[in-house]
Design a protein around this nucleic acid. Structure first.
Lengths: 192, 192, 192, 192
DNA sequence: CATGAATGAGGTTTCATTCAT
DNA sequence: GATGAATGAAACCTCATTCAT
């Protein structure tokens, strides 16, 4: 009836609203949360969710994907800082902020209840690829240690982000991110 | 034949068998696994589980508690090594081994589906308390850096254990534990 | 098409259909009847029952309440007959008819399996209140005996209704209601 | 090992203990009460119940039968009083006492959950037979009305006993039995 | 012969998904 | 296209009954 484009914009906005609601509800109740709860949070009927996502698993996957994509975008920006140490510091900063903003969701997503292979392999590795790039750049610049492969140090940094959530729970004080940066740089700094 | 004690031994053994089965099944299918599956794995009827654990949540809590207690016991042994750096290395070693042995379970247990407060607060803090003791000992011996509180460094090490699981997924190579020890010690070593 | 009212009409009709089915099934199999049986009788899925009644106990309570309310409505009409003796005769008539129409249900409801306090106190006393009004009116008119409190005679009549079910089982002949009226009036008639 | 007779006495005593426990528990929780609860009340294991009663239904039937037999014995004694009116008064007295002593049980037994035909037909009619005998004796003596069959009046008296339980709940005052006797005699007295 | 832990069919209840309105 | 009542498979849990000790 109406033109195709506004409808798509509407549809996209609707989809985002649903994802926002799903994020909020999953963060609060975990993946076992009911579809009805998500629908209520989004202010729609359950049928509307199923028009956009064929399955609960699909919805979970979409939530996860959007979150990862968001993190990748932020990390990519930080990774473009020229000085490797500064880039790492910035990456830790933005990754921790992102992790904190989505902490409830992340804890939920680590669940064994996750549908298997709900995230495309290449998407979840994108993150690691970017981090690895910066680390190797630092190694080549002689700033980071070379007695371990860059891939390992990158994975180690990756794990830092995961650990941050745990840290924030047990040590809920300010300055955690900054201290993490200091510790990481001290750990990976090239030895004299 | 003998007095009332053997019955208790039986009962205890049974309970352990159920917990073993629950650990295996939760690791494989996550917390959403069915009670029936666990019962089959243990070679008993579902009723037997419910005789020992009033509720599925109770079973999950018991599994979690036993796992934590096992980890605490191992960590405690390692923490008694006199040299703080060696103690930390040993703790990383045993904690990572334990984490790996229970990786499926851990991933499942981080689920948002966990019943709230299913582990007594003091039990889950025990772990951190032991680690903190070693770190502070190292600080007092001048081995570990003192520009950050011992509690923070301990929590950081704690978070390492969590991160190890993630690392093993993305970097499934040998020597991860050893490298982690090196990195952690380099990070927390006292600066000249 | 129309405003929100037709949905309510639908919902109400549905609820009534469920109650009808529950009455029929409880009458046939007693309270222990399965929810599934009731759902099948109503031509719906079990989930539909649980949308309308949170619990089996709630369903039982609703059935009971509707039955009581129906009886109260009938008795109220009969109680408005001016002549007390005639009013009593009419009340016995309608109460016995009602009891007979619901005999299976009543026998089931007398079960010890009834959820405790599933009927609001004021609702179940309404019945007695109406009967008492007629009896006292008859006493004041000099028609009924006054050597016993009106409340007692009313409770006695009340009990008659319960007893009728039993009578119909052991003496399944015609004219029982009429004979009961005669006996009751002879019992409570004012003595010369 | 031991002689046969003392064992039988033991067995009988055991059976009675179980029935006593069953009566108490059924009265408190209704027929849906668990076998385990009854076993605990009797101070035995569930297995012991099943040695004496093959089935829960069998236990219920045995409870019911013993209760009926007790009532029949009491009523029989009262029925032997020569004066029909006095006999009726006495029967009301003992039947009401018996009903009250077993009120919880009776309410439970009226349940639809009762196994069908759990009481032999002749046993449950015994009661009515005795009452009918007294009523007809009164009719022949010209004491009771003859415009209704003795069987009907007997059934009517029977229903009184049922009604008594209901009465005691709604009118929990003293003198109920005595008033019931007066009302019944006034109802069935021969008309001048 | 008594015990009570084990059994597992079957009950109640939940919730992802469908579809008439 | 949106809604939310209906669906019913499948989950959790109960309890009559069995049987090794």
């Amino acid at each position: 009836m109406t033109a195709g484009i506004p409808e798509r914009a509407d549809a996209r906005a609707n989809r985002e609203r649903l994802l926002d609601a799903a994020v909020a509800v999953f963060a609060e109740h975990g993946i076992p949360a009911e579809m009805k709860t998500i629908a209520e949070r989004a202010g729609v009927g359950v049928g509307t969710i199923y028009r956009n996502f064929a399955t609960k698993d699909d919805l979970v996957a979409a939530v996860l994907l959007r979150t990862i994509d968001g993190a990748v975008a932020l990390i990519t920006l930080a990774s473009e800082i020229e000085d490797p140490a500064e880039a790492v510091t910035a990456m830790i900063q933005v990754a921790c902020d992102h992790a904190e903003a989505n902490s409830g969701l992340f804890q939920a997503l680590f669940s064994g209840g996750l549908p298997p292979d709900c995230v495309p392999e290449d998407r979840s590795l994108e993150f690691l690829r970017i981090v690895t790039g910066v680390i190797i750049r630092g190694q080549q610049a002689g700033v980071f240690r070379t007695d371990m492969p860059g891939e390992f140090l990158a994975a180690f940094l990756d794990a830092f982000f995961m650990a941050y959530l745990e840290l924030r729970r047990t040590v809920p004080v300010e300055g955690t991110k900054e201290r993490l940066s200091v510790l990481f740089l001290d750990a990976v700094r090239a030895r004299p």
